[in-house]
Nucleic acid binder design. Structure first.
Length: 521
RNA sequence: GGUCCGUUCGUCUAGGGGUUAGGACACCAGAUUUUCAUUCUGGUAACAGGGGUUCGAUUCCCCUACGGACUACCA
């Protein structure tokens, strides 16, 4: 093991990771992936997966968002060991409910000289930034230099600070970031990352409403909850050095978790990261489940409702930025857990490719037992249309090679239940013939004398009729298909005939011969 | 602008000092088929550019370009 400050031996500790979303709206797909990687890692290491709700910003609270997070994780099969609903040894797991715990640590930092009170108003902060911008300062920020010009416990006389605090003046507590210091942190994905402290501003730790900011709360909670590995999005990388500083000043550096910053999920054109605001604009959902904004009423679609199967979705998601290093593409959750390792997570941003998601869905759909797929069809049947489970199974078994989503079964297979009301005119014009129509009528009549009504028997009969009429199968099959289904494409026609039954077949042939007579040549 | 991170087929990626640079999706072609789809076979297609180091660099180093993230009393 490295003797470096940032590295330490976590081998003896039980792996504990957390997914820590903010309930500010629906969880987006990048967040789901982060949760998944946390889960895979935890389970691979035989550790624990916790969910912590980071709701320290009360102004951004969105009703229903927390439930949405639970529902999403559950749908994906991500099981939590500790959470606001599962409870656990470090409850509560909502930061708003942990509010009383944070001030103690902020005060500890103040006493140690690593943090200070600041009384600046929003207007004063704006002024400061404007002033620095006008002076062509590259990064206007509240830092080691500018803090000397602001209203805080470092610049104000001691008695005034005391007076302000006692009189209830609004204040924040800021971290006193050193002026010149190289901060190093080891990222499991990127290696050593070096940042100079001058690039970090004096981050607010405690807000004026008494709530901690993410930065403080996250470190305090991760420490208290004995988190061993922080696996989160790359957008956190710039503030990671700040977190290292916090661990150090709080005296927790020897148990500081290891970091892994995940590459971001990018829009398909590579132009920026996939965000909640993309909604359905990109032509595919960015959320796992449907969501209706409680305020605006705006609806966003989710993968579940769009017809994506949970296991295929998870498989797809796992491969966005990670790969097993083998040729295997299809993985169950257990296989993902077995194969997963942080070392095999890529470094670069990953463009989102919905085509691949569709392909995964097709693979998983076809692998499902017919009895299960039949349920999708049955559930989609409109009022008034009956179907036995046995018949539904037969239909899905011949249809599943040609559908992507469960809802396609009804869309593509409606003709099993409803006779065509219109025919593909183009194909009819090209393939329909008087000779064929005559043969179909003969075939229809002879259906009554068949001993059995199954695909093989029917096919033999059709072949016989065609032979008698001097027709080849290729000349008339398309016409017969149009007659029976109205459309030009579909599964084996004989299988369709077997499923729709003798009477229906006869009826449809009669109607079609009548309706398509104009095309008889 | 500043700081940080990144860059292998269109996309997701494997690989790694000497390889015909491999796979998957997508795409194209052929085979099969009663159609479409499936399936099978084959194909197009990549190491961002420039300097080093080296006998040799796509691989290691530097620079440039490009892309991304961050730059709040939001997470």
């Amino acid at each position: 093991m490295h003797p470096d400050l940032n590295t330490h031996d976590n081998m003896a500790r039980e792996v504990r990771v957390r997914f820590a979303p903010s309930p500010t709206g629906p969880l987006h797909i990048g967040g789901v992936r982060t949760a998944l990687y946390n889960y895979l890692f935890a389970k691979k290491m035989g550790g624990k997966m916790l969910l912590r709700i980071e709701d320290t910003d009360q102004t951004r609270f969105v009703p229903g968002a927390e439930q949405y997070i639970f529902d999403s994780l559950e749908w994906c099969g991500i099981k939590l060991d500790e959470s606001p609903v599962h409870g656990g040894p470090h409850a509560p797991y909502r930061q708003s409910e942990r509010k009383p715990m944070y001030m103690e640590y902020a005060l500890q930092l103040v006493e140690a000289g690593h943090a200070y009170y600041a009384f600046d108003t929003a207007e004063e902060l704006d002024e400061m930034r404007e002033r620095l911008k006008a002076a062509k300062v590259a990064t206007p920020q509240y830092n080691a230099i500018t803090r000397a010009t602001m209203k805080n416990s470092l610049t104000l006389p001691e008695d005034e600070v005391k007076r302000r605090l006692e009189s209830g003046d609004p204040y924040v507590i800021r971290l006193k970031v050193p002026r010149k210091e190289e901060i190093r942190l080891k990222d499991m994905i990127r290696g050593w990352v070096m940042v100079h402290s001058s690039a970090i501003d004096d981050k607010v730790l405690m807000k004026s409403d008494g709530m901690p900011t993410y930065h403080l709360a996250n470190i305090v909670d991760d420490h208290l909850m004995e988190i061993t590995h922080v696996i989160r999005g790359e957008e956190w990388l710039p503030s990671a050095p700040l977190h290292v500083l916090l661990y150090r000043y709080l005296g927790w550096e020897d148990t500081m978790p290891e970091f892994a910053h995940l590459p971001l999920l990018l829009k398909p054109d590579g132009n920026g990261k996939l965000s909640k605001r993309d909604g359905d604009k990109l032509g595919f959902p960015v959320f796992p489940l449907n969501w209706t904004d409680p305020v605006s009423g705006e609806k966003s679609s989710g993968y579940r409702e769009a017809g994506y199967l949970a296991d295929g979705f998870v498989n797809f998601l796992a491969f966005l930025g990670w790969n097993p290093g083998t040729q295997q593409e299809l993985f169950t959750m257990d296989e993902l857990i077995e194969a997963f390792s942080i070392e095999r997570i890529g470094k670069s941003g990953t463009r989102f490719d919905i085509q691949k998601a569709r392909w995964y869905n097709e693979q998983y759909l076809r692998a499902k037992p017919d009895a299960e797929l039949a349920q999708y069809l049955l559930a989609a049947l409109p009022e008034g249309i009956d179907c036995t489970p046995e018949r539904a199974e037969k239909i899905v078994s011949i249809m599943k090679e040609r559908v992507t989503f469960p809802q396609d079964f009804w869309k593509e297979a409606a003709y099993f239940f409803v006779a065509p009301t219109e025919y593909n005119e183009q194909v009819a014009a090209k393939k329909w013939s008087a000779a064929g129509a005559n043969a179909f009528i003969q075939f229809k009549n002879e259906l009554d004398s068949l001993p059995d009504f199954d695909a093989d028997t029917v096919k033999a009969q059709l072949l016989q009729v065609l032979e008698q009429n001097g027709l080849k199968i290729g000349q008339v099959m398309q016409a017969l298909r149009i007659a029976l289904t109205g459309v030009e494409a579909g599964p084996d026609l004989m299988a369709i005939i077997e499923i729709i039954g003798k009477e229906e077949t006869q009826r449809r042939i009669e109607v079609a011969v009548e309706r398509l007579s104009q095309y008889a040549k």
